[in-house]
Amino acid sequence: RKNLMSTLRAPQSFHSAGLGDVRGYGGGSSLPMNGLTAHQSQVLNLIKNCHMPEGVSLQELKSQLHNMSMPTIKQAVEFLSSEGHIYSTVDDDHYKSTDAE
């Protein structure tokens, strides 16, 4: 009887663990966090993590955010810029974060 229970349980827990991982990684993409959408905070995080003097280019953002299209990235960047989280540097394609000091 014990054997039957464990063989029944193993695949179940395996499945739910797998699902949990996927959800945790891509995570709640429509839920806004601290006033930002998931897209916006992804873009902000990438810009924060870049320590190049001229900031991050839109092309670099695109190459790292496979789930976002260029118009979506530009929208997020414009929003973050209007909120003051980021600002453009050498040109309108390069951005740095204000709170990365």
């Binding site: 810029s81 209007s82 909120e83 003051g84 989280h85 980021i86 600002y87 453009s88 540097t89 050498v90 740095k96 204000t98 709170d99």
Partner: peptide, 20 residues
């Protein structure tokens, strides 16, 4: 560059206004 510094200051001001 001067323009970058100004952009940054403007952004910091916007951020400060948001956080009021």
């Amino acid at each position: 560059q001067e323009r970058i510094r100004q952009n940054k200051e403007a952004a910091l001001r916007r951020l400060a206004e948001r956080n009021v």
